[in-house]
Design a protein around this nucleic acid. Structure first.
Lengths: 219, 219
DNA sequence: ACCTGAACACCGTTCAAGT
DNA sequence: ACCTGAACACCGTTCAAGT
């Protein structure tokens, strides 16, 4: 009966990459929540949230299609959790970029953080879409809102710091920071939409920051 | 049999708003394609493409669930067509805005077109998402790509015109126009994501354009 | 506490058949 | 040329039941 041998029982879970986990987990999978989030993010990368199927996730992990319900009440809850982890990672990356450029002039700090942001966007386009979509949903979690606010704390601080030091124009921080981050977010959005010319991302970001600092007026 | 009287036959189509069409169309609906696009856009407004159901559309219009297939081979084809009409309307609005500000200084023209763009985005957030998503899909239609290019012709022309007149800094048009439209697109994106402070959209756009023209350097 | 299996009400897509 | 009806293989969600 060779053919039946290839039909693995559900509990076998084709998890060749998860040998260690498989050896330690106490049967009922043990870490289904994390497993769902990991697989979900990989699935999200090749298509929007619409292509992501809870049943397929459960099938891949090797649990019943109803098992995810114990960890996420519905699909949207899983997507929200995914967005939340996304914000946490973005916060870490932006914070690290800001610290690495600490002490350099404004344009250099701005470029470092902006580049990190745009690269995050191009590496995880579907996730970023999800993060922004989830954030402004009517019933967004408090945890989600907080995660989003934290992620943008470093970028906003960069602008207000520069204002305090007199490196850039003063005035209401919103009227200065908002156009600044609108441009960076716009570059990121254009990059993920594939409407950037075939030019290195880094030079696009550098050009954008330089143009923002110098202005459009002829010199 | 009062209860049966309320069960309208499928051919009745509860189209109280479409009395004129109903009177003139030759039974087989006659204008199903247009009807599908109209309903689809209204449905799109209250949720992403995932919430839009072809079967529900067909039900509302009063045709069988297989009827749409005659006009759109699959759901994505309908979404692409929706995106294409979106680009056509955006092109018309941006072109009109550019013409209405013709002769005024650069900042005024820029503000007029940018405001039109941002307002389009806030009026049709789901449609704009669809337009950008559809545009960069691997197998996007040529018609779709062309529609997108046409829509952005006026905005790009605005920048290159100003360069030729010496109103703004010269050099490679891409290195000037790209940061400019990145900022406008970024403002639009932030507006639809609800992360703009509670300030009139018009003043946000004006601030952004002014900041872009003058630059961030302290004066 | 965590998971299963069957059930329900939906999808998109296909295709023979109708008018 | 345009539409219907049944069929197929999927969904997300629910809930009694298992361990």
């Amino acid at each position: 009966m060779l053919s039946t041998a290839t039909k693995l029982s559900p509990s076998t879970r084709g998890g060749t990459l998860l040998a260690v986990e498989a050896a330690t987990r106490p049967y009922h999978h043990g870490d289904l929540r994390r497993a769902l989030l990991e697989r979900a993010e990989r699935r999200l990368a090749d298509g929007g949230p619409g292509e992501l199927s809870l049943r397929e996730l459960a099938r891949e992990i090797g649990v019943s299609h109803a098992a995810p319900r114990r960890h996420f009440p519905d699909k949207q809850a899983l997507l929200d959790a995914l967005a939340e982890t996304g914000f946490a990672r973005l916060e870490a990356e932006l914070g690290a970029a800001a610290r690495s450029a600490d002490g350099k002039p404004f344009a250099a700090r701005m470029t470092a953080v902006a580049l990190t942001y745009v690269r995050f966007a191009t590496r995880h386009p579907a996730l970023l879409d999800l993060m922004f979509a989830a954030k402004h949903r009517p019933h967004a979690t408090d945890a989600l809102r907080e995660a989003a606010a934290c992620a943008f704390a470093a970028p906003l601080g960069l602008v207000s710091d520069a204002q305090e030091r007199g490196e850039i124009v003063g005035g209401d921080v919103d009227r200065v920071a908002l156009p600044t981050w609108a441009m960076i977010h716009g570059v990121a959005s254009m990059a993920t939409s594939g409407l950037l010319p075939d030019v290195p991302l880094e030079s696009v970001v550098r050009d954008a920051v330089e143009r923002l600092v110098l202005g459009l007026r002829p010199r």
